[in-house]
Amino acid sequence: MIAWIRIVSGLALVVLVTIVLLPVQLIGNRFGWKLSWYLPRYWHRIARRVLGLKIIRHGQLEKRRPALLVANHSSWMDIIVLAAVADVVFIAKSEVKDWPVFGWLAVWQRTVFVERERRRDTGNQVSEVGRRLADGEIVVLFAEGTTSDGNRVLPFKSSLFGAAASALDASPEGRVAIQPVALAYTHANGLPLGRYGRPMAAWPGDVELPPHLLAILKEGSVDVHVCFGETVIFDSSANRKLVSRSAEQQVRRMLQKRLYGYEAGRESA
């Protein structure tokens, strides 16, 4: 009974905060206010508390701009975690727009949607990401192109790393900072998830969203490590595939360290 009271009250708080912040966000989007860059972080910080996500940070977010974060992806919670840590925008597949609630939130947060089946539009989509980067926004790319089970990193797809190249001309120094980021879900209610328990936090594409969301809410507490790696500088002489491979290797090493060598860290604000 207590768990259900906590869940209902938490969801009510999220709805209330959404009602308050959404009109301001929509107006900011309409008129290009920079407030719309920062406002989503406050919504996501409240959402992560309601979900019981304890964020433990390792390393520092890249301060140079333009900046592209490339991360592993195992759950819809990754978006809430990263957006609670920094003012970011995401690259997502176009199908996300049709998701109930989360699709609307993605649109309101100014996500760049990619039509993977319409290759003739790829150039325009890459240019849009490049424009966002050049404007100083921090863009997040889930470079695996899909979700994993949380135990491993799938091969990175190098195609959208071309967005970094499209931002070079507008960059004052002719370069883009690409920072690898690893997200590792390690504990639930203080107990290690382990290899077989970790998929509880992960969200494979064939699992319905509402039951998974409810399961996370019932858990009450999940530890997630956010590991910022060493920045890779992308300039006119860089090889996109080599940069992609380097970022993938870093993310894989950081994920394995947190999954199999747990260390205490610093919780985000």
Score class of each variant (00 low, 15 high):
residue 115 E to Y: 11
residue 229 G to K: 02
residue 3 A to R: 13
residue 111 T to S: 12
residue 182 A to S: 12
residue 152 R to Q: 10
residue 234 F to M: 12
residue 177 A to H: 14
residue 193 L to F: 11
residue 98 D to A: 13
residue 76 W to A: 11
residue 207 V to W: 11
residue 163 A to H: 05
residue 2 I to P: 00
residue 269 A to G: 09
residue 94 S to H: 08
residue 65 R to T: 14
residue 108 W to T: 05
residue 53 L to Y: 03
residue 228 F to P: 04
residue 8 V to Y: 03
residue 63 K to Q: 14
residue 72 N to L: 07
residue 113 F to D: 01
residue 164 A to N: 03
residue 174 G to F: 02
residue 91 I to Y: 05
residue 10 G to Q: 06
residue 99 W to F: 12
residue 41 R to W: 09
residue 69 L to T: 06
residue 229 G to C: 12
residue 222 V to Y: 00
residue 207 V to S: 06
residue 39 L to W: 11
residue 92 A to G: 04
residue 148 S to T: 15
residue 78 D to V: 03
residue 242 L to H: 10
residue 30 R to G: 02
residue 33 W to Q: 07
residue 260 Y to M: 03
residue 77 M to C: 08
residue 233 I to E: 04
residue 214 L to N: 10
residue 203 W to D: 02
residue 87 D to W: 00
residue 147 T to K: 10
residue 257 K to V: 04
residue 226 V to L: 13
residue 100 P to Y: 11
residue 32 G to T: 04
residue 26 L to D: 00
residue 72 N to A: 04
residue 200 M to I: 08
residue 38 Y to M: 11
residue 91 I to V: 15
residue 69 L to H: 12
residue 28 G to H: 07
residue 2 I to Y: 06
residue 29 N to T: 00
residue 144 E to Q: 07
residue 102 F to L: 15
residue 158 S to F: 07
residue 98 D to R: 14
residue 106 A to C: 11
residue 226 V to F: 07
residue 138 I to T: 15
residue 189 N to C: 14
residue 207 V to G: 04
residue 96 V to D: 06
residue 265 G to Q: 06
residue 34 K to P: 11
residue 157 K to Y: 03
residue 11 L to M: 14
residue 131 R to P: 00
residue 204 P to I: 05
residue 143 A to M: 02
residue 9 S to E: 02
residue 158 S to K: 14
residue 38 Y to T: 14
residue 31 F to R: 13
residue 50 V to D: 03
residue 35 L to G: 14
residue 47 A to G: 12
residue 86 A to H: 11
residue 266 R to G: 05
residue 197 G to C: 06
residue 195 R to G: 05
residue 80 I to P: 01
residue 192 P to M: 07
residue 157 K to M: 08
residue 230 E to F: 06
residue 181 V to S: 12
residue 218 K to D: 00
residue 165 A to L: 10
residue 94 S to W: 01
residue 116 R to D: 02
residue 125 Q to H: 04
residue 263 E to H: 01
residue 164 A to V: 09
residue 7 I to E: 04
residue 232 V to N: 00
residue 266 R to D: 02
residue 104 W to S: 14
residue 126 V to T: 11
residue 59 G to D: 11
residue 38 Y to D: 10
residue 267 E to H: 06
residue 212 H to F: 04
residue 87 D to P: 02
residue 30 R to Q: 05
residue 105 L to G: 13
residue 98 D to W: 08
residue 58 H to D: 09
residue 114 V to L: 15
residue 79 I to H: 14
